[in-house]
């Protein structure tokens, strides 16, 4: 389990990085590497070159810009989990980041890396879809904004081009919507068997965004029933449409949706 040989470049600026990605065919950006390096070690990823984004200044910042929370692609999961601005404006994101892997993985893994890798069982892509985040993709041609809801194509597939870097994400500041997050995993720190983010607006409308039960984040708008039995039927009907691995995952989808819903109301969904 050792990687194939590759060249290694360490750009000092984003402009240099995207130029390198353009100049070196078969090259791949590496940030935290917590998904990429296992793939390298298994020789399932075989890049010609790696362009290391870790030393690029400015990509690891969290700030409020106007009505949006802007998070750099190099922000580590543990930073995301602990950052006061994230906790204040997007507590559900801070919570989800705390569920990513284990401590040592969170210390190195990055937001941008997780989104670019797009594992269907990962938490952060689903939070971005739920939050209607916009991604800032940078290439040698310039910057383009892609909404999270158009970014994820399916299993490990995204709108990100091989010569692009996911430099930052922007989330709208919350507006009276309440959020709940829930996931089920075999062991704490494992990839989820099923997970959900539930949003409830004051007018009674809401949505559920699932992960780990399809090729990518799955968001459904609905008016959530107040009655528990009706709600259970709602979750089951929606879960039945999911392209999940098996009936068990679809069953869990309904379970986590309910838990996330109860948490969005500030109730303990166990």
């Amino acid at each position: 389990m050792k990687p194939v040989a590759f060249a290694y470049y360490r750009p000092q600026s984003l402009a240099e990085a995207v130029r390198m990605l353009r100049e070196h065919p078969g090259s791949k950006p590496i940030a935290g590497g917590q998904s990429l390096i296992p793939l390298l070690n298994f020789r399932m990823a075989r890049p010609e070159a790696l362009v290391d984004l870790n030393r690029i200044p400015g990509l690891d910042e969290v700030e409020v810009r106007g009505q949006r929370l802007r998070i750099g692609g190099l922000v580590r999961h543990q930073q995301l989990h602990e950052h006061p601005l994230v906790r204040q404006h997007w507590p559900v994101l801070a919570q989800a980041a705390g569920e990513v892997g284990h401590w040592a993985i969170r210390n190195r893994g990055t937001l941008g890396g997780s989104l670019a890798h797009a594992d269907p069982a990962a938490e952060l892509p689903a939070v971005m879809v739920a939050a209607d985040a916009v991604f800032e993709l940078v290439s040698a041609d310039g910057v383009r904004q892609v909404p999270a809801r158009e970014f994820f194509y399916g299993y490990l597939m995204t709108a990100l081009q091989p010569d692009e870097v996911l430099a930052a994400v922007e989330l709208p500041l919350a507006s009276g919507t309440s959020w709940g997050f829930a996931e089920v995993a075999r062991r704490p720190g494992d990839f989820a068997l099923a997970g959900a983010i539930c949003e409830c607006r004051p007018d009674g409308t809401g949505a559920v965004t699932w992960f780990a039960v399809g090729g990518g984040p799955e968001r459904h708008e609905l008016v959530v029933a107040a009655d528990a039995n009706e709600r259970a039927a709602q979750w089951q009907d929606l879960a039945a449409t999911l392209d999940a691995q098996d009936d068990y995952r679809r069953h869990l989808a309904a379970v986590v949706a309910e838990t996330a819903y109860l948490r969005s109301l500030g109730r303990d969904g166990q």
């Binding site: 298994f42 062991r187 990839f191």
Partner: peptide, 12 residues
Amino acid sequence: SLMDYLLPAATD
């Protein structure tokens, strides 16, 4: 791999 063959952790 140990992603598929699951071993008990301190929390289990």
